[in-house]
């Protein structure tokens, strides 16, 4: 039996819906179910949604609807959650070039974990990572599920500039820098795919609730995708 959701105001134009207390897949999936219900319902006055690990924030226009109206509407949706089938899981494939200039810290990660670089690549690219949420910087995915075998502490001295598309490891987390920014993660690979392009029809490639799969590619392929504008790849 699913736990009852908790509703509380975050401000005079936003509400938080709490789904649980721990970071786990099942809770995150429930948020996705609610999100899909809300999107289908398209409630007048609801402006946007911010899903996170255990909560869903809903931003609304108090001129259209007050707090109590919105909670009443959300409780109706909550009752319908169990009958609503979970949306099919989307897997987003991200081609990456491991090591070399694209992954300057790959060897350090291998050494730290007493592995070969090939083993690190195999471990990192052999599982799918749930995108729990996006935040921090535009398009930055909070991923779950990295193997402990390749966990590595952050760099002692952060880099002033990590190129966009860099894939890093920090402790037991792995992630992608969607835009170039300063950063202290151990960089093991890079993708030529632009995760974020404000001028594209679909500005962000990743979304919360989807899974991310890293596909190792060769340098020629990297360059080819880059030339194509870093959007479409594969066949």
């Amino acid at each position: 039996m699913r736990e009852q959701l908790e509703y509380f105001p975050a401000s005079d134009n936003s509400i938080l819906v709490k789904f649980g207390d721990e970071i786990k897949k099942e809770i995150n999936q429930e948020i996705q179910v609610m999100l899909h219900l809300l999107e289908k319902e398209a409630i007048a006055g609801v402006i946007e949604y911010i899903p996170s690990y255990t909560k869903l924030m809903i931003v609304y226009d108090p001129l259209t609807m007050d707090y109590d109206d919105l909670v009443a509407k959300l409780k109706e949706l909550e009752d319908r959650m169990d009958t609503f089938s979970t949306p099919s899981t989307k897997i987003i494939e991200i081609p990456v070039m491991y090591g070399g200039e694209y992954g300057p810290d790959l060897e350090a990660v291998a050494k730290y974990n007493n592995l070969s670089t090939e083993e690190v690549i195999k471990i990192h690219s052999s599982r799918d990572y749930l995108i729990y949420m996006l935040g921090f910087t535009p398009g930055f995915p909070y991923l779950g599920g990295m193997s402990k075998k390749i966990a590595t502490p952050r760099l002692k001295k952060p880099r002033k500039k990590v190129p966009a598309g860099s894939i890093g490891i920090a402790e037991q987390q792995t992630g992608i820098y969607p835009i170039s920014s300063p950063g202290g993660w151990q960089i093991i690979a890079r993708t030529p795919i632009k995760l974020f392009d404000p001028h594209r029809k679909v500005p962000f490639l990743l979304e919360a609730g989807a899974y991310l799969r890293f596909i190792p590619i060769r340098p020629e392929k990297f360059e080819w995708i880059e030339k194509k504008g870093g959007f479409k790849w594969g066949v």
Binding site: I47, E48, P51, F136, T137, F140, F204
Partner: peptide
């Protein structure tokens, strides 16, 4: 700019 906060866009 509304509608993109879920992707991390302020």
């Amino acid at each position: 700019r509304y509608g993109y906060q879920r992707y991390g866009m302020p």
